[in-house]
C-alpha cells in the first residue's frame, strides 16, 4: 500500500499565495514608481511627466524627473530590496526571528563612518558613500572575527553584534557632542532619509545590491537547513561555520551600503520577511521563496514610505518605525501565543 506522498495540494496553494504576494508587491512598487515620477514640489502634470520619462527634452521639468525623482525612487528600491533580503538571511543564520540586518554591527558602524565623514571631511558623494560602506563592513568584520571564537554560534554572534552596535552608537554620540560645530544636519541623517539621493548614490548602490541579491538567491536552498541544531547540521555534513560566514558576508555587503545610502533604517529588514510569512500563511517557508519575496516586499515598503515622506517631508526612517513598530508588537504577541 504505497501512497503518493508529494504534497501537490499544499505546494500548489503555497505557490499561488507566493504569486499573489509578488504581484501585490510589484503593483505597490509600480504605483509608487508612477507616483514618485509624477508627483513632487516642482509640479509636472501627469501626462507631461509620462512623456518626459521617455524623452528628455533638457527642460527643468525633464531634469526634475530624470535627475531628482527617478534616482530617488531607484535608491528606495535598491535599499529596500537589499534590506528585505539581508533581513531574511540574517534571521536564518542567527536563528532569531527578531533579527535584522544591522544585527552584526553594520548599522552603527556605517552610521558612525557617515557621521564622522560628514563632521570632519567634505567628501564628494561617491567617496562618502564608499567610506560609510567600508565603515559598516569593518564593524561587521569585527563582530564576525570575535564570533569565530565560538564558530559563529548564533547566540554569541547576536550578542557580539549588539555590543558592537552599542559601542559605535556611543561613539557617534560622543563625537557629535564633543565636536564644536553645528551638527543638526547629521542628526537629521541619522533618522534615515532618502532626500536628495541622486545618481551618484544609485551608482554606488546598484553593484553592491545586485551582487548581494544574486549571491543570496543562489544560496537560498542551504538556508533552509540552518534552523536545525548544530549537531544535526554537522551530522548532515553541512559546513555550518563556513556557510554562516559566507551568508554573513552577503548580509553585511547589502546592509552596509543600504545604511550608508539611506541612514539606519534596517528595521525594514526585520519586518519584510515576517510580512511574507504572514502573507503566505505559514512560518516554515523555503528560503527559495522567502528570499526573493522579502526583497520585493522590502522594496515596496521603502518605496511607499519614501513617497509618503515626500508628501510630508518627514524622514523616511520615522515612517519605517511607525510602520514597523506595530508590526513588531503584533509579531511578538503572536509568538507568545504560539509558544504557549
Amino acid at each position: 500500500m504505497s501512497r503518493h506522498l508529494v504534497d501537490t495540494w499544499a505546494d500548489f496553494s503555497l505557490t499561488s499565495r507566493a504569486v499573489w504576494i509578488s504581484g501585490l508587491s510589484l503593483v505597490a512598487i509600480g504605483a509608487t514608481l508612477i507616483g514618485s515620477l509624477v508627483w513632487g514640489d516642482y509640479g509636472v502634470s501627469f501626462s507631461h511627466a509620462l512623456e518626459l520619462v521617455a524623452y528628455d527634452d533638457g527642460s527643468d521639468a525633464a531634469f526634475v524627473i530624470h535627475e531628482i525623482r527617478f534616482p530617488r525612487l531607484l535608491a528606495a528600491m535598491l535599499v529596500g530590496s537589499a534590506l528585505g533580503l539581508s533581513g531574511a538571511i540574517v534571521q536564518a543564520i542567527t536563528r532569531n526571528p527578531l533579527g535584522e540586518p544591522g544585527l552584526l554591527g553594520v548599522t552603527a558602524g556605517a552610521s558612525f563612518a557617515m557621521a564622522f565623514s560628514m563632521t570632519f571631511f567634505s567628501l564628494p558623494t561617491s567617496a562618502e558613500l564608499a567610506f560609510g560602506t567600508v565603515g559598516g563592513i569593518s564593524a561587521a568584520a569585527l563582530t564576525l572575527a570575535i564570533g569565530m571564537k565560538a564558530r559563529l554560534d548564533p547566540l554569541y554572534l547576536t550578542l557580539t553584534g549588539m555590543s558592537v552596535n552599542l559601542f559605535f552608537g556611543a561613539a557617534i554620540i560622543v563625537m557629535l557632542v564633543s565636536a564644536n560645530i553645528e551638527v543638526n544636519g547629521i542628526y537629521y541623517w541619522l533618522t534615515g532619509s532618502l532626500v536628495n539621493r541622486t545618481w551618484d548614490h544609485v551608482a554606488i548602490l546598484w553593484p553592491w545590491v545586485v551582487s548581494g541579491l544574486i549571491l543570496g538567491l543562489f544560496g537560498a536552498g542551504r538556508l533552509d537547513a540552518l534552523i536545525l541544531d548544530e549537531d544535526v547540521l554537522a551530522s548532515l555534513g553541512i559546513r555550518v561555520t563556513t556557510w554562516r560566514l559566507l551568508f554573513g558576508v552577503v548580509v553585511v555587503m547589502l546592509a552596509a551600503v543600504a545604511v550608508a545610502a539611506a541612514g539606519p533604517i534596517t528595521f525594514i529588514g526585520l519586518v519584510a520577511p515576517h510580512i511574507v510569512r504572514f502573507g503566505l500563511g505559514t512560518q516554515g517557508v523555503s528560503h527559495r521563496i522567502l528570499l526573493p519575496l522579502s526583497a520585493l516586499v522590502g522594496a515596496a515598503l521603502v518605496c511607499a514610505a519614501d513617497l509618503a515622506a515626500k508628501w510630508q517631508e518627514v524622514p523616511v526612517g520615522i515612517l519605517c518605525v511607525l510602520l514597523g513598530g506595530p508590526v513588531l508588537v503584533y509579531l511578538v504577541g503572536r509568538r507568545e501565543v504560539s509558544d504557549a
Binding site: 513632487g40 514640489d41 516642482y42 509640479g43 527643468d60 531634469f63 526634475v64 535627475e67 531628482i68 525623482r69 563632521t119 571631511f121 567634505s122 564628494p124 558623494t125 560645530i181 553645528e182 543638526n184 532626500v195 536628495n196 541622486t198 545618481w199 517631508e313
Partner: peptide, 29 residues
C-alpha cells in the same frame, strides 16, 4: 525646502548660510 521647490521658484538671488566650514553639499540641481 526641496530642491524641486527651489527649481520651480528659481530665485534671482540666493543667500546661503552653513554652520560648519567647508563647501556646500553638491546636488545636480
Amino acid at each position: 525646502m526641496t530642491m524641486e521647490a527651489l527649481l520651480r521658484l528659481n530665485p534671482d538671488v540666493i543667500l546661503s548660510f552653513k554652520g560648519e566650514a567647508g563647501p556646500f553639499v553638491q546636488h545636480p540641481a
